[in-house]
């Protein structure tokens, strides 16, 4: 593996990990498979683009706008797909369908409002590159890796240390038990949705350094996020990270050795094989407890 493949693999791993951890936390704490994550992603991209065109192209503005939009969309999803039905019968399936509907509507709204043309985001990390020996690493690659590793580190530490993180972890283990010890499911769920929305927003800004913002931009990240979260075992943050590394490096290696068109094929073949051997994902144990 050469340095370039390693670097792009690392970059993809980071972005997939951010997306998948969002999906995974929502699943395990809210019991909802969030199919509107793709819309959150696309909307955050548009938010960042709009802010950049309004208030200037500084990195701070772009990041702040992307993350805020993502968090806001998270709140919208919380209101539409969780708040009203979370204690009603048939909730998991209904939540899944509701988020799917939100995704469909949201993408079409973006299409209607902004048109199908792709929009570029400003390069927040600049255009330069650094040399490690004989390998050139662009600033955006380096920035993505540093940024996402930093954010994920802070997030995990926050989940581990803070009171709110404790509540979220309690809800992930057993929502009913969490409610019994006095944790408000609604409040905690709101925090989870804001958090995962913000993560999706961050991923949108980071990924839009290489790709463009478009209404359908969310589909691939959504699929990748779902794949990684499921592959790692829903509800497991460690599993999601391992899954992200596997999918990210598989993508980078395939792209450099076989060609871009085989990326999906290789990824899905890998997933099918892994699922055949570990039917609940790499570290999927919590799922058993989650089912009623």
């Amino acid at each position: 593996m050469d340095m370039f493949t390693l670097m792009s693999g690392l970059q993809l791993t980071c972005i997939y990990a951010i997306l998948a951890i969002g999906v995974s936390i929502i699943w395990s704490s809210l019991g909802m498979l969030n199919l509107a994550h793709g819309f959150t992603f696309a909307a955050a991209g548009y938010g960042a683009w709009w802010a950049a065109s309004m208030f200037g192209k500084s990195a701070l503005v772009v990041f702040a706008a992307g993350i805020t939009t993502g968090a806001l969309v998270g709140v919208v999803i919380y209101v539409l797909a969780f708040l009203y039905i979370y204690d009603k019968p048939n909730y998991p399936v209904r939540a899944l369908i509701a988020t799917m509907a939100i995704n469909m509507m949201g993408v079409q709204l973006l299409m209607w409002w902004f048109g199908p043309r792709m929009k570029p985001l400003p390069k927040v990390f600049g255009f330069g590159s650094v040399k490690f020996g004989d390998v050139v690493v662009t600033y955006s690659q380096l920035g993505t890796v540093v940024c996402s590793v930093g954010v994920l580190g802070i997030l995990l530490a926050w989940l581990g240390i803070s009171r709110r993180g404790l509540e979220i972890r309690a809800m992930m283990q057993n929502p009913e038990g969490a409610a019994l010890v006095g944790i408000s499911l609604r409040k905690t769920a709101l925090w989870v949705m804001i958090l995962s929305g913000a993560l999706a927003g961050l991923a949108a800004v980071l990924l839009s350094q290489t790709f463009f913002v478009s209404p359908y931009a969310g589909l691939q990240p959504l699929i990748k996020g779902l794949i990684v979260a499921l592959l790692g075992g829903l509800g497991s943050i460690g599993g999601a990270m391992i899954g992200a590394a596997m999918v990210g490096f598989a993508e980078a290696l395939t792209a450099s050795h076989l060609g871009g068109q085989y990326v999906l094929m290789v990824q899905f073949t890998m997933i099918i094989i892994i699922l055949l051997f570990r039917p609940r994902g790499i570290s999927g144990l919590l799922d058993e407890a989650r089912e009623e």
Binding site: A98, A101, I102, M105, W112
Partner: peptide, 22 residues
Amino acid sequence: FGPIRFIVIGLIMLGVTLFARN
């Protein structure tokens, strides 16, 4: 109507899921 009809489909879907159990 272009994309609006998908928004309408999505709204129907959302309404049905939120208010109808099945």
